[in-house]
Each structure stands twice: as C-alpha cells, then as structure tokens.
C-alpha cells in the first residue's frame, strides 16, 4: 500500500524537477515578482500581462532571472491584456524550454501542478485536479475559456506554468478565484499569441517591395 504512495510522491517530485528549470522569475523594481515560462530555447518567455504591464511598471525596469541565476532585461514582444498574456524576449540561446502540451485534451479529474514564486519562494509547487475548462467557473462568467483547478494559487504564482503529470504546459497561472480555485489561461491561447509574434517577426524581415538589389527570395514549389 505504501509503495504506490511512495511512487506517487516521487512522481510529483520528478515532474517538479523537470519543469522548474523552465520557470523564470520576473521582477520589477517595486511591486513584487511573478513567474514566467521559457517557451523556446531561443529566449521566448511567456507570462501574464499583469506581471509586466502593471501601471507602475515599465518594461525597462523588468528583470528576468533564470533558474540558474542569470539575469536579463527582456524586450516586450506582445501584450494581450484581454487574455492576460505577454510574450518577452531575452538575449539567450539554448535555454531549457518547457514541453508545450494541449489544453483541448484536458479532462476534469486529471491531476495538474502549478509553479511560480509565491511570496518570492522559488518553485512554489502546488497540486490539484482539473475542475473544468470553460467560460463559466463558479460565479465567474467570462467571454474567454479558462482552466480551473483545485489548487492554491498565490499572487507570485502569476505567469508561472500549470502542467500535467507528464510536465507538459497546459496553462499559464493567472488568478485566484477565491482561496480554493486556481485559474489558468489555456496553453492553446498562448500558442496563438506566440504564433502571431512569429508571423509578425517574419513579415518584418521581408522587404516592403522587392528591388533589383535584393537577393532573389524565390521558392520553387
């Protein structure tokens, strides 16, 4: 009987070990800190809009601290206040990116874990189960879908990852709805925002009108 409990406990610890290198702390000079997630090894970080765009915060005062202690000043690539998401870029390569999961596949009752920096504590692991995914969570009604989980999010969890038991990102912790419900932005919403950032970057690199001096950029299909 204790065997399965030991395995269960070791399993949780092992998910934490896998996820925590991809969790960054985002500080701004004055008003505390939140979490962020390394989305891509090339320095793309996803977090909450409210972590980086509080009215007392300007992007210049932001610091991203990696799990290995290195610190960077990020560039803000995209802000989506409606979904409480932001995309940052830091000048680094080869970072330990999180495995990105699929929030469409989430089922009520399945286990999830959340990480962040509650009260500045690194990690801040908390676990629970998916209550449901939808636009209506208890008394909260919203035009957007959210993931609700039976775990305890604290202010510093904002912007940190919510993951499944395989350590895959399924949501970005965003708010507390009472003491007993943790609410996250579904990862699929973040995927769309990051995709939009990539497409904008790609089109920005294209010349407005081809000139004779441009290298040919013709793709044969």
């Amino acid at each position: 009987m204790n065997d399965i409990l030991t395995q269960f406990s070791a399993g949780i610890a092992s998910v934490s070990e896998r996820v925590l290198p991809a969790v960054v702390q985002i500080r701004n000079g004055r008003s505390g800190a939140g979490g962020g997630i390394i989305w891509h090894e090339n320095g793309i970080i996803v977090t909450n809009a409210h972590v980086v765009s509080h009215r007392t915060v300007s992007p210049q005062t932001l610091t991203v601290q990696l799990a290995d202690g290195r610190e960077f000043t990020p560039r803000l690539l995209a802000l989506d206040a409606e979904h409480d998401l932001a995309v940052l870029q830091i000048e680094a390569q080869g970072l330990p990116a999180i495995a990105v999961g699929d929030s469409q596949q989430l089922k009520p009752g399945q286990m999830v874990l959340a990480f962040g920096f509650p009260w500045g504590v690194t990690g801040g692991a908390t676990s629970g189960v998916v209550i449901g995914v939808g636009t209506q969570i208890g008394d909260l009604r919203s035009p957007h879908e959210w993931v609700a989980a039976s775990l305890h999010l604290r202010p510093g969890h904002s912007g940190g990852p919510m993951v499944d038991v395989a350590g895959r990102l399924i949501g970005i912790n965003t708010l507390m709805n009472g003491p007993d419900v943790g609410v996250a932005v579904p990862v699929d919403v973040a995927k769309r925002l990051v995709q939009a950032v990539y497409e904008k970057q790609r089109s920005a690199n294209l010349p407005a009108t081809p000139s004779a001096n441009d290298k040919p950029n013709i793709v044969m299909v």
Binding site: Q7, G11, Q110, V129
Partner: peptide, 18 residues
C-alpha cells in the same frame, strides 16, 4: 518515476468520464 502518477491521473479522469 512518473508512471504511477500518470496512471493515477488517467484513472481519475477516466472515473469522471465514466
């Protein structure tokens, strides 16, 4: 190490479905 955890998680989601 996470096999027990994954089995548990899937069982719970399965119980809900059932």
């Amino acid at each position: 190490m996470t096999e027990a955890l994954q089995n548990l998680s899937q069982s719970m989601a399965g119980l809900v479905e059932q």
